[in-house]
């Protein structure tokens, strides 16, 4: 669903223009509570103008880190200082100051040369390893299906980046809670990434990147509707889908007229530039092992009951025997 249709569905058609003109005007929730929203990128429409990147930076500028320098010494010496505060203009990769970038590639497909532009940011996984494995409760899923990092409590250990199949979160040293705890011995700053404009969404708005796009490349809506739309679009353009099943399913789905392998080959991944390779479900074991943790105590109690019954029977036989 495009921006205007999205607001119309929510009974906000008349407010669509006003909501865009006056940030935070719309007080309504963007969707019924508990509705998992996904976004769809139609890459055939993206011209790589960068309006989404610019809008993201403007909308989130007040959330960017302002590190204190000099940074406290960290032990041992292998702990890396990651400082992007003097490179805030970098926009061709993910950084703590750039949560969305456009990956461009010239791809040969079916005898034609096509230029493809792909806005890249957090995939917002349905089973996010970053949130599931954060030991500090700093990363979590939201009701609308996005994944966010609480920058007020994040210690910057970068575990979320290590376990993310796309290495999305980016660290800035010299900022955050770790400075008040053990800055030399634990932590290393704060991790930053796209949270799909959580505050704007909560206020009834749309993510800045969606609102700013002149070509309506991106749509947002309930995930099942977005998935159906992605398949329709892919069928219509004989295209390809990425994000629907990756890592067990994400809430960011791309439809491209060229294979994603070809985009990856023409524009290889690297630091701050996420992969486009197929990604298996990193957390697939969780559900089965959680089931085992439910069955184990039941089996234990059943076993104890049977054993107690046998002891009683044996004791009676011993007394009468």
């Amino acid at each position: 669903m495009k921006r205007r249709a999205f607001l119309k569905t929510l009974g906000l058609a008349g407010a669509a223009t006003a909501a865009a003109a006056v940030p935070g005007l719309a007080a309504e929730k963007p969707a019924a509570p508990g509705t998992v929203l996904a976004t769809l990128f139609d890459l055939s429409q993206c011209i790589g103008c960068g309006a989404c990147v610019e809008a993201c930076r403007e909308a989130n500028a007040n959330r960017y880190p302002e590190p204190k320098k000099p940074f406290p010494p960290m032990y041992p010496s292998r702990v890396p200082v990651e400082d992007w505060s003097d490179k805030r203009d970098v926009d061709d990769r993910l950084t703590p100051y750039n949560w969305l970038f456009i990956q461009s590639a010239t791809v040969e497909h079916q005898g034609k040369s096509l230029e493809v532009h792909m806005p890249r940011r957090c995939m917002h996984c349905q089973k996010p390893p970053c949130a599931n494995l954060c030991p500090w409760g700093a990363a979590s899923k939201t009701a609308s299906g996005s994944v966010r990092i609480n920058t007020d409590i994040c210690l910057g250990g970068a575990k979320c980046k290590t376990v993310c199949p796309w290495s999305i979160p980016q660290r800035q040293t010299g900022v955050g809670l770790y400075l008040d705890l053990l800055p030399s011995l634990a932590g290393n700053g704060v991790m930053y990434k796209c949270d799909r404009c959580h505050a704007r969404m909560a206020a009834g708005g749309l993510p800045a990147c969606i609102e700013a796009c002149p070509n309506e490349v991106q749509s947002i809506g309930p995930r099942d509707e977005i998935v159906a739309k992605a398949h329709e679009l892919a069928k219509a353009m004989s295209g390809f889908i990425y994000g629907e099943t990756e890592n067990g399913g994400t809430n960011t789905i791309y439809v491209s007229p060229v294979p994603f392998e070809a985009i990856q080959a023409a524009s290889p991944p690297g630091p701050g530039r996420p992969t486009l390779a197929p990604v298996t479900d990193a957390m697939s074991f969780e559900t089965s092992l959680a089931a085992a943790a439910v069955v184990a105590p039941i089996a234990a109690v059943a076993g104890a009951v049977l054993r107690a019954a046998k002891r009683n029977t044996d004791a009676k036989e011993h007394r009468h025997g």
């Binding site: 092992l289 943790a293 105590p297 089996a299």
Partner: peptide, 10 residues
Amino acid sequence: AAVFLYFAFR
């Protein structure tokens, strides 16, 4: 955790 729960409940 599953092993622990088994013995704890047993």
